[in-house]
Structures are given as C-alpha cells and as structure tokens.
C-alpha cells in the first residue's frame, strides 16, 4: 500500500513541478509588464478603491513590489512556506491586476490571481495529509481555471439565452472590430485584408458558424466536469485549446488570461512531453521511485 502511495506522490510531485515553473514564470512576466506600463490608476476599482494602488506601483512602492514578487517567486519554486507564499502571491497579483483594471484596461485576469488562492486553500486545508495535499494543489488549480469557463458559458445563457449560437451571424461586427484594433495598433494593412476575408467566409458559412458556437458554448457549460478527473481534464484542456485556436484564427483574439493558465494547469504540456518521452523509450516514468523505497 505504501509503495503505491509513494509512487503516486512521486508522480504528483513531477506533475506539480512542471505545472508551477511555467505558471510562475509567465505570471511574473505579465506582472513585470504591467508594472513597466507606468499606470496612474485614474479609474479606481476593486481593492484600489480602498488602498491607494498608485503608491504601490510607482516609486518606493514599485521597488517593494518587484523585490517582494521576486522573493515570493523563488519561495514558490522552492516550495517554501507555501501557505503564506501562495497567499502573498495572490495578494500582490490582486493589487497589480486591479491597478491595470483601474487604468481602464479591463483584461479580466482573475484566473491568474485566483489560482494562487486555490493553491493556498490546498495547503491550509490538506497540509497534514501529504497525498491529499499533493493531489489537491493540482486539482484546486484545475477548479480555479474551469470555473471561469463555466461562468462564461452561464453569462452567454443569461444574456442571450439558448439562441446565442444562432444569433452568431453578427459576430462579424466583433471580428471587424478586433482586426481594426490590430490595424490601428501597428498599421499593418494585411490585418484588414484578413478581416474582410474572414467576414466573407463567416457570412457564407452560417451553418458552420452555428455549429462552432454551439460547440464552444457546450464546452464552457460542461467545463466543471473536468474537475472530476485529472486525465479527463487533460483531454478537456485540449478541446478548450482548440476552441482558443479557433477564436484566435477567426477573431484575432488570444485571451491570454484564460488560455495560458488553462494550458499550464489542465494540459501541463511539459509534464505530458516527459511522460510521452518516457513511454516512447519504454522507460517506467518514475524509475527512481521503487529504488528509493
């Protein structure tokens, strides 16, 4: 029994390492990017209505944020004092992302912050049970991701009802808007050529459009089922990734705050690559496990 438990723990450890390294690196990259934007928080929202976020993202506050976030990232990578480290990362994440929202750029990056709170819950609740902890810090992260998709599906039902997919013909207006956004950013006129090609394709392919929209609504509404089983979550993640690729192709929109944590948490591509490589070489995935026991 202990042998099986140990193998499971080693497997979960490896999965956790490949989840947390890309996640924290990406989070830190976005965090630094927002801090470099010199935002002045002119339209305070959320926590920035209570705390003066402008003071925290410039001058001495900015220095503190960079030092604190760097330290917390190192502690996170070392699995050090994780109850507090994850809470600290959550707090910094809320302050900085809310500062961005409060500068008029509502990116809805809540998933990035909430993942750390979910992981913190795992450490606070299951800290005394090693196997439970190692399982739950991954499973709670999956929940933090899929709940966003579920709510997005619910919003569509609440705002448009079941007719959302069939109302989709006017998505062409959103497609145009999106491609014009890119054009006005870079003045690359190929964006406009592509925009009108896609608008024409969508106008001529209404049935395909309804099927695609109905498919993505179904995926979103049933996203919580991915929290039941980790292997199933991986397949669900691949389906969601295909949906994001479709949105990117047709609408020129990459919802980074959704797609990136989803890929790291649900698909965990680096872990998957190592796992498949081991399988290819017909090596047991965790050979050291049995030796060390």
């Amino acid at each position: 029994m202990n042998v099986i438990k140990n193998i499971r723990i080693r497997g979960l450890d490896k999965e956790w390492i490949f989840l947390k390294i890309p996640l924290i690196c990406f989070w830190f990259g976005i965090f630094r990017h927002i801090l470099s934007k010199n935002y002045k928080v002119p339209i305070p929202s959320g926590i920035c209505k209570i705390v003066n976020c402008a003071n925290l993202i410039e001058g001495h506050g900015l220095f503190f944020m960079i030092v604190a976030s760097s330290l917390l990232c190192i502690m996170y990578l070392l699995d050090f004092k994780m109850k507090w480290t994850t809470l600290g990362l959550f707090s910094l994440s809320v302050i900085v992302f809310t500062s961005e929202d409060s500068s008029g750029i509502l990116n809805r990056s809540g998933t990035f912050s909430f993942i750390f709170l979910a992981q913190s819950f795992a450490y606070w609740i299951n800290g005394s049970n090693l196997l439970k902890l190692k399982y739950s810090r991954i499973q709670y992260s999956i929940q933090a991701v899929v709940v966003g998709y579920f709510l997005s599906g619910c919003s569509k039902l609440l705002d448009s009802g079941l007719s959302w997919p069939s109302d989709g013909s006017r998505i062409t207006l959103q497609v145009l808007k999106s491609f014009y956004y890119h054009y006005y950013t870079t003045l690359d006129s190929t964006e406009l050529v592509k925009a009108y090609e896609i608008v024409q394709f969508l106008t001529e392919s209404q049935n395909i459009l309804v099927v695609l929209l109905a498919g993505s609504l179904t995926l979103e509404l049933f996203a919580l089922t991915a929290a039941v089983n980790k292997s199933y979550a991986r397949f669900y993640g691949i389906a969601l990734l295909l949906m994001h690729i479709g949105i990117y192709y047709f609408m020129d929109i990459l919802i980074v705050s959704f797609a990136v944590p989803m890929v790291f948490v649900m698909i965990n591509p680096f872990y998957l690559a190592v796992f498949l490589y081991d399988k290819m070489l017909k090596k047991p995935t965790f050979p050291h496990t049995l030796k060390s026991m």
Partner: peptide, 18 residues
C-alpha cells in the same frame, strides 16, 4: 478582480466600435 462572470461576447449586438 479576481472575480468576474467573464461576459465577453455573451451577446452579439448590432454595433461594434474601434
């Protein structure tokens, strides 16, 4: 933040602005 019901493209009105 961090809460949202993620209402992006939850309806397709007859207008869009850039």
């Amino acid at each position: 933040h961090p809460f949202s019901r993620f209402p992006m493209y939850s309806n397709f009105p007859n207008w869009s602005y850039s």
